[in-house]
Design a protein around this nucleic acid. Structure first.
Lengths: 135, 135
DNA sequence: ATCGCTATGTTATATTATAACATATTTAAT
DNA sequence: ATTAAATATGTTATAATATAACATAGCGAT
């Protein structure tokens, strides 16, 4: 069961399925709880699968929430360019796929000349629903 | 000792000074260790000060590292727009102040029409030093 | 002077993540 | 087929990060 890029190992598949079917980003320990019935019993099993799914670009970590979300870009094979929209009120989180934005950031160079091979961007605000409810 | 925006309380000042004088971002528990001699003994005291310093814009949290860094924009009063450059090798972290970038991101609108009042961007790559050492 | 607010102090505990080691499975070379 | 190397899994314990909950103290306005 050694791993080609395209294939997921047993635990990886179990954990990916749960994240993929979730309506919101999931926390590691909530995943752990969900997979206990499938025989995955300990944190390292979950974290190992998460780490590898991230490296493969199948999921992303929302750093500000310590939560994990499936990648919606079907062609995303390496998670080196991520942007998320996060509602401060209802915590709804969606991945932003915006070609202009990703091009802009992929090509960004700072004053030091340092070149980047990866970025993560998290936007915060109120989603439409929550904006309405407030007014 | 009630708090105007400009003034720091005792604990806030102690903790800000340490972060400000550090050469690299500091972790909460390393700060806690440093301030034990000053009478700050428990995590909540540190985390409360950190939270408030963040709200005031005096420091920022590097989400991917759980570390805290002083804001270098002398005029930054609210930490609603942050961008960092992180070296994957030596972990050197610097805040990016780039007017073009901040304007671009402040004005960014996604397809849903959601408007953002805050963002955090973290770029990863190799800094010049580390790039040289590798070649 | 006392009420409300902010800040501080303190203990305990929750949450997130990894170290370290053992076993098993797969792959690929011989 | 046999075996070595690499990958994946299982397991226990613990490290690292963060917050809940409650108590006390200081300030600032009426």
């Amino acid at each position: 069961m050694t791993q080609k890029f395209e294939f997921l190992s047993k635990n990886q598949q179990i954990i990916y399925d749960i994240i993929e079917n979730a309506k919101e980003p999931l926390k590691a320990y909530s995943i752990l709880y969900s997979v206990k019935k499938k025989g995955i019993k300990a944190p390292p099993q979950v974290y190992r699968a998460l780490d590898r799914l991230i490296k493969m670009g199948k999921i992303h970590k929302i750093e500000s929430k310590n939560a994990f979300i499936a990648c919606k870009n079907s062609n995303c094979t390496i998670s080196n360019a991520t942007a998320f929209s996060i509602c401060d009120s209802c915590e709804a989180i969606t991945e932003i796929s915006n070609l202009k934005l990703s091009k802009y950031l992929a090509n960004f160079q700072d004053d030091t000349g340092m070149r980047y091979n990866k970025y993560n961007l998290e936007f915060f605000g109120l989603c439409r629903k929550c904006k309405k409810n407030k007014s």
